[in-house]
């Protein structure tokens, strides 16, 4: 049994107990997933305070909505659906959300000209910093799918469920997100697109 399956089994048992009103079981779910959800929200929103508030709100919403959860759905998929919707609501509220057409040119995502010095380009820390910057400048729909795939290891079927799109769209949006992230990354690193 791998880690993911083990977590799923534990989630299932605790979620069923929590759905029946067991607060301790729900506390166990919160403790297991609070950092994952916070990490996702932090990278979606960019601010620690808002990510903390929304993590808390998402769990409160999850508690209220638990009677609607069905064991056929993976608990984490359902939980991230709540967190993702909350993040989108907040981003819409901030009017920072950016809707792009499906065939938009990824190069439009580059928002400023920034070239780090050559010696910094090769440090791991700088590379991570550049990646974070490349992620932050992605349109929301590309950022969320990339984070859920790369950090949360969601399958295409789960991504389709969370994002409310079909698997074909998951495939194309994820490819576009990766291409845009690479373009942004190279731009900030001062590399040419063909490197």
């Amino acid at each position: 049994m791998d880690d993911k399956t083990g977590i799923d089994d534990a989630d299932m048992a605790q979620a069923l107990s929590a759905r029946a009103g067991d607060l301790r079981a729900f506390a166990g779910l919160v403790r297991r997933h609070q950092d994952r959800m916070f990490g996702f929200l932090l990278r979606m929103l960019g601010t620690r305070d808002e990510a903390m508030d929304l993590t808390q709100d998402s769990f409160l919403k999850a508690w209220k909505a638990l009677p609607d959860w069905r064991p056929e759905a993976r608990f984490t998929t359902w939980l991230f659906q709540i967190a993702r919707n909350a993040a989108l609501d907040l981003l819409r509220h901030r009017q920072r959300i950016e809707f792009v057409s499906l065939d938009a040119d990824p190069s439009h995502d580059i928002v400023e000209d920034y070239t780090p010095s050559p010696e910094k380009q090769f440090s791991d820390r700088q590379r991570i910093s550049l990646l974070q910057r490349a992620i932050d400048t992605l349109p929301v729909d590309q950022r969320e799918i990339l984070l859920l795939r790369e950090l949360e290891d969601m399958s295409y079927a789960e991504l389709a469920l969370i994002l409310g799109i079909n698997e074909g769209t998951v495939k194309s949006r994820l490819a576009r997100a990766r291409a845009a992230a690479l373009t942004n990354f190279r731009h900030y690193a001062g590399e040419s697109p063909d490197d």
Partner: peptide
């Protein structure tokens, strides 16, 4: 790119959220 994602720091909330929200849960669901 995937390998770089794996290198991103794991952010932690830094406190036990379960005990914070315990008092805010509106009764058993």
């Amino acid at each position: 790119l995937s390998a770089d994602f794996a290198q991103l720091p794991k952010d932690s909330l830094g406190f036990d959220l379960a005990s914070v929200i315990a008092g805010q849960l509106p009764g058993p669901a």
